[in-house]
Design a protein around this nucleic acid. Structure first.
Length: 152
DNA sequence: GCCAACGTTGGC
DNA sequence: GCCAACGTTGGC
């Protein structure tokens, strides 16, 4: 079992969107090689902390689970998609997607400021200055602490 | 809206 | 393969 943090702009796909979706939600549009490689490393059942970015209340808002491991991201082939990549073909896809299901919403949003106050979380990539990765691994201990804080 | 940090592109 | 220029991300 692995643990991850996925960033999302809530205007696009919030924790509530994930929780309200009848089916699993496709996590598409990742266009960074390092983030893509992390997506490919995700296993069925892995737990995912959902982080809201570029919004009024930035922070970790809940938990989701990987329900389908990496497959070719369909949006890379779709000229109508903002994630379209003209350099790929069906025979030579470049980008991957996974599917996730929302599990639960935290009782409050865990801000970056609050997370930074936890000495045990200082190693988290999410908290590094200038961090831009949208898919990041997290240790089990870090996950457990964040989950605890979110449910207080 | 500012701007630091970072990834990508492309000329050489 | 170097590196400057450029575009994007994302917190604040």
């Amino acid at each position: 079992m692995n643990y991850w943090i996925f960033k999302t702009e809530p205007a696009e796909c919030s924790i509530d969107d994930l929780l309200n979706a009848a089916e699993a939600t496709i996590w598409e549009g990742v266009r960074n090689y390092q983030a893509r490689n992390f997506l490919r490393a995700a296993s069925f059942g892995d737990l995912v902390l959902i982080h809201h970015s570029s919004c009024a209340e930035v922070g970790i808002t809940g938990v989701a689970r990987i329900t389908e491991t990496a497959f070719a991201d369909p949006s890379q082939f779709d000229p109508a998609s903002p994630y379209f990549d003209s350099k790929v073909s069906l025979a030579n896809p470049r980008w991957s997607a996974v599917k996730v299901k929302g599990i639960e919403r935290f009782n409050r949003v865990l801000s970056l400021q609050e997370l930074r106050q936890q000495a045990e979380l200082h190693q988290m990539q999410l908290l590094r200055k200038g961090n831009r990765l949208s898919v990041m691994p997290i240790t089990e201990d870090e996950y457990q602490l964040v989950y605890f804080l979110g449910k207080v």
